[in-house]
Amino acid sequence: MNLFKKIVFKLYVIFLMVFTVWYGHFMYPLIFGFEGKEMAAESLKDLGEAGTDHEKMFVKLISEHGKKSVTDLGYKVIDQPYIEGRFHHIGFPIEPDKASLCVSCHGNVPHDNSKEVRSFLNMHAFYVGCETCHIQPKEAGESWRFRWYSKENGDIIDNPVALVEIEDSYKEDAAHNYPTYGKYGAKIAPVIQKGSELVLLSGEKEKKFAQRYVTELGNLNSEQKSQIKKVIHQKVSKTPLQCDGCHQEKDPYIPYAALGYPPRRVVELTNTSVVGMIEKYKEFYIPSFLSPGVGNE
């Protein structure tokens, strides 16, 4: 019994000794500064040392990575990514596509060439995998199936429930109906049958190949770089799928209904007004009768 008491006492003393050391460590930043001070100073130093505006922007982008803006309204807290200079609120976290081979190099906002439609194309890149428009069946008669894949891990998943929820929201109060388009956590992409499984055209193997290329860039000469780039992009079609490939009533390239789009939405998507807007109305002016007071002076 005495031995037991002794052991308990010793353990208690050891615990107090550990606590004393921890307490000294805990108090250190409270007396001499705060945790992260050095890190913050280092980051600011980097910013100060960056030379050109572009270098400064690069350092700033890195330092702002993951930065959030939180607005507390008392009855609701709006937590959203911080985008410098943005006036309107976003209200949702931007879901990165961690699974796509293309996005791993080209990013989430890849389109830039066509000034008129680049934003629209980037908008599509939010819901549609790059392969959908940029890789098309080469052999006549070959057709691909389309499925949703998870932006998080690339798994082929069921049609998003959100598509039905959007539809249901229209049954509610029309004046205060705010359907949230695009919160699917998934994208549409072509898939092929491999054995008993359906797999994406660019899977994990291709992604690893591209990642290896990026890490080995320094060890490759300029010809070798071009060679590998060519191999990575060899499936890419010369001409991408055009808007009317999908936005047409007769035979849309993407089978919307099979992908879970409700009938009303299918009609919206296959209605050509959006396509027509882009192609026909390059000089479309909003009439002034829609803006009371303007033009009456």
């Binding site: 309107h88 609120h89 949702f92 680049r118 939010f126 695009g182």
Partner: peptide, 23 residues
């Protein structure tokens, strides 16, 4: 209303044109 309506502008800034109607 579409979340991804965006581009990178000539100065390299990310421009998001999405409007959250509810907010």
């Amino acid at each position: 209303k579409h979340r991804g309506l965006s581009r990178i502008d000539e100065d390299g800034k990310f421009r998001l044109f999405y409007i959250n109607q509810e907010l």
